[in-house]
Design a protein around this nucleic acid. Structure first.
Length: 463
RNA sequence: UCCCCUGUAGCUCAGUUGGCAGAGCAAGUGGCUGUUAACCACUGGGUCCGUGGUUCAAAUCCGCGCGGGGGAGCCA
């Protein structure tokens, strides 16, 4: 079956074909009826024209009545050049079969604009709108681009576990996984004994695959994860989900500068891919969702990412302290307003900020010789701020162990992670990117719940 | 978790000092020279989120509950 996307770019050679999809609108004039058919292969509809000048057949008229917005239909006709502006080709209809009706009095979608809030309540139908169709196509293309980027560079995709009984992930509140009948235990007044649970101990959904993927990095050299992660944080914002997808590359025998270079190539690859493969959808986002999005992406693709240490960044910010709600000082965690200022005002383009104070970064980051900072990096981009966070990892066993003890972390839980430093250790680094945050950036969508098909958040797990 | 805003027709919203429930779009019907968010005319359409209170009278004021949105913190 030929997709509408292919048909719209093919020549109007008069061949007869049947096209299936969903009716977006029906317009009836005296001498012609116009149906807009969409199959999700692209944003544009196929215009199907019924010649009514000499009267329509009983059969066609009966089908037309059932052919409202939202109905699925098989339309047969010949592909011809369109005499009117607006589309190059159209289907001259000879046969019409409604497959499934969508009664106007009960079908929630109308041929008018709906609010994103309303569409969130009908997440099972919202993919039929222009906006969510475009988001879905972009999400697909970005997933493809992520794999193509890494595969072309010899990175191997590692499937880190979704369920983990490891209590050393430490990236946020976790969802517990159990097969114990907690209701029955509570009714019987019995204590919960996790030694009797499925894994003989407490288990959770993963919050990050990074520590796991590091083990494969120390064998396969260049690896990445791309899969769902889960955070049980009670955060209700436009930027957080309880279930989201994350990309985490890790490369061996590499240092922070290699990491920054990889991140720069990565983002440029993704944005160039979006501009190339999703031009029609991006034009829509630019017009209806976020004006200037195409220019923003293009400028990042053409840019050279700047480098700046945290210490330099704070010095710059201190010069303009009066412009911030939170006054910057050495040792503070950079606020969103600081990050945006650095990339938009100080640099005027993407910038990688490195060497943060160890107190505000994770235990596994490589300690610098100054003993105060670690080899961390955040990539900041205009209009958003931080898009990527990563670091060179601490690969020296004694230093990592000391750091774990200094922070009072459970040493035994990290035994396997420390083993990577006991046996054949090597400098390595990596970064993490939230897939939905990336999608917000490339689509201009303002709420993270609108770039994933079925958002899971606090008090929200419908559909 | 904290702070702010909000809930009225299928959708988006207006509703003045408390005094008969409104508009646009959508839908239905009719019209219209091939339209493209078609256009024009007419018609139908309401548990004013729920609950309790104040009042002669509540969409409007007050309490509680529920839903939605935004911001902060946390972070990806």
């Amino acid at each position: 079956m030929t997709s509408i996307r292919d048909l719209l770019s093919s020549s109007p050679d008069g061949r007869t074909l049947t096209v299936k999809g969903w009716i977006r609108t029906k317009r009836e004039a005296k001498n012609a009826v116009f149906l807009e058919l969409n199959d999700g292969s692209c944003m544009a509809n196929l215009q199907c024209v019924l010649d009514a000048a000499s009267g329509l057949s009983e059969t066609l008229r009966a089908e037309l009545v059932r052919c409202g917005t939202g109905a699925s239909a098989a339309v047969t006709g010949t592909l011809v050049a369109s005499p009117a502006a607006g589309q190059a080709v159209e289907l001259k209809v000879s046969g019409l079969e409604v497959i499934g009706e969508a009664p106007a009095e009960s079908y929630p979608l109308q041929k008018k604009n709906h609010s994103l809030e309303f569409l969130r309540e009908i997440a099972h139908l919202r993919a039929r709108t222009n906006t969510f169709g475009a988001v879905a196509r972009m999400r697909n293309q970005m997933a493809y681009a992520i794999h193509s980027f890494f595969q072309e560079r010899g990175f191997q995709w590692v499937h880190t576990p979704v369920i983990t009984a490891s209590d050393c992930e430490g990236a946020g509140a976790m969802f517990q996984v159990t097969t114990l009948d907690l209701d029955a235990l509570a009714r019987a007044g019995k204590p919960v004994d996790y030694a009797k649970d499925f894994f003989d101990k407490k288990a959770y959904l993963t919050v990050s695959g990074q520590l796991n993927v590091e083990t494969y990095c120390m064998a396969l050299s260049r690896v990445y994860t791309f899969g769902p992660t889960f955070r049980a944080e009670n955060s209700n914002t436009t930027r957080h989900l309880a279930e989201f997808w994350m990309i985490e590359p890790e490369l061996a025998f590499a240092e922070l500068e290699d990491n920054i270079a990889l991140a720069e190539d990565f983002l440029k690859h993704l944005f160039a891919w979006a501009l190339d493969k999703c031009a029609e959808d991006l034009a829509f986002f630019d017009k209806r969702i976020q004006s200037g999005i195409v220019d923003t992406l293009s400028s990042v693709v053409k840019s050279k990412f700047a480098r700046m240490t945290y210490t330099e960044a704070v010095k710059e910010l201190e010069k303009h302290a009066s412009e911030f709600e939170f006054k910057p000082y050495w040792g503070c965690d950079l606020q969103s307003e600081h990050e945006k200022y650095l990339t938009e005002k100080v640099v005027g383009g993407p910038v990688a900020v490195t060497d943060y104070p160890k107190e505000i970064k994770a235990f596994y980051m490589r300690l610098n010789p100054d003993g105060k900072t670690v080899r961390a990096m955040d990539v900041l981009v205009p209009r958003l701020g931080e898009i990527i966070g990563g670091s060179e990892r601490e690969y020296r066993h004694d230093v990592l162990l000391a750091r774990i003890r200094e922070l009072g972390l459970p040493e035994e839980a990290y035994s396997w992670y420390l083993d990577l430093r006991r046996f054949g250790t090597a400098p390595h680094c990596g970064f993490g990117l939230g897939f939905e945050r990336l999608l917000m950036y490339v689509t201009g969508m303002q709420n993270i719940r609108d770039v994933i098909p079925f958002p899971r958040a606090v008090h929200q797990a419908d559909f």
